[in-house]
C-alpha cells in the first residue's frame, strides 16, 4: 500500500531535481535555434565497400528556409538543395535540372548516407512536434543526462517516438533513438563531441545510424559555423539553384 502511494506520488513528476520535460525540450530548442546560421561540414558515409567524404556549405534562415551546396568530391560538386517550408528541390549540374523531391523519394537516403531527405526536412523545434516525459537519468560517457521519451503530437511526423539523453548541464541531446509507430527502432544519433560557440553548445561530431541498414553509419563533422550573419534573401529561391 505504501509502495502504491509512493508510485502514485511519483507519477507525472520529473525524476530528481530540475526542470520538467517540457522545459528541457524548450531549452534544447533555444540552444539550437537561431535567426540564421551558415556552416561548412563534412559528411563521412561509411559504405559496405568504401567510405566517402562529402563536403558541403549550408545557409539556414529560421526553421523554414535552407540552402546547401556540395563542394566535394567532384561527383557531388555543384549539387544544390533548397528547402522552403515543407518543399524540397535538388539541382544537379549533370542534368541541369531542378527536381522536386516528394512522395516516397523523401524516405530515400541522401547521398548514400544514413540520413533521409525526410530527416533533412524536419524542423529543429522538438517542443512543437513532441510531448515529452522524463523517464530517468543516465550517464553518457562522463556526462550526466536526463532520459526523455518524446511522443509525436502530429501523425505525419517521420518518427512516432524518440528517446533522448539530454546533457543536464549543456541541454544538448547526446544520444537519441528514433522509433516508428510500430515501436521498431529506425535510427540512432550519437553526439561524440560538442563545441562552444558563443553562448551555445553545438554538436561538432555526430554519428547517424540507420539501424535497418547493414553499415557503420554516417559521421557528420561540423567544421565552421557562424550564427546570425546576413544571408541574402534571393539565396532561398529556385533561381539560385542554377547559379
Amino acid at each position: 500500500m505504501i509502495m502504491f502511494i509512493v508510485l502514485l506520488c511519483q507519477a507525472g513528476l520529473p525524476v530528481g531535481d530540475g526542470p520538467d520535460a517540457e522545459e528541457i525540450l524548450t531549452r534544447i530548442d533555444k540552444n539550437f535555434h537561431a535567426e540564421n546560421r551558415v556552416f561548412t561540414s563534412r559528411m563521412i558515409v561509411h559504405g559496405r565497400r568504401a567510405s566517402r567524404t562529402i563536403v558541403s556549405k549550408s545557409w539556414i534562415s529560421g526553421e523554414d528556409q535552407s540552402f546547401s551546396e556540395y563542394l566535394s568530391p567532384p561527383r557531388e560538386k555543384g549539387i544544390k538543395m533548397l528547402k522552403l517550408a515543407d518543399r524540397l528541390w535538388t539541382y544537379s549540374p549533370s542534368s541541369d535540372r531542378v527536381i522536386r523531391i516528394s512522395g516516397h523519394l523523401l524516405r530515400q537516403s541522401v547521398m548514400g548516407s544514413d540520413l533521409s531527405y525526410e530527416d533533412m526536412m524536419e524542423t529543429d523545434e522538438l517542443a512543437v512536434n513532441y510531448t515529452a516525459e522524463v523517464t530517468g537519468e543516465e550517464k553518457v560517457g562522463d556526462r550526466l543526462c536526463w532520459v526523455l521519451t518524446l511522443n509525436a503530437r502530429k501523425a505525419d511526423l517521420a518518427y512516432h517516438q524518440r528517446t533522448i539523453r539530454v546533457d543536464k548541464e549543456r541541454y544538448i541531446p547526446l544520444l537519441e533513438e528514433r522509433f516508428a509507430k510500430s515501436g521498431k527502432l529506425l535510427k540512432t544519433t550519437e553526439i561524440k563531441e560538442v563545441m562552444r560557440v558563443g553562448q551555445r553548445w553545438v554538436p561538432k561530431h555526430m554519428v547517424f545510424r540507420d539501424v535497418l541498414k547493414k553499415g557503420k553509419g554516417t559521421e557528420f563533422i561540423l567544421d565552421e559555423i557562424a550564427y546570425d550573419v546576413a544571408i541574402p534573401e534571393h539565396l532561398f529561391s529556385k533561381a539560385s539553384l542554377r547559379k
Partner: peptide, 8 residues
C-alpha cells in the same frame, strides 16, 4: 557509391 545520379 550512393551519390545522387540525375541523368537526362
Amino acid at each position: 557509391h550512393g551519390s545522387t545520379a540525375a541523368v537526362n
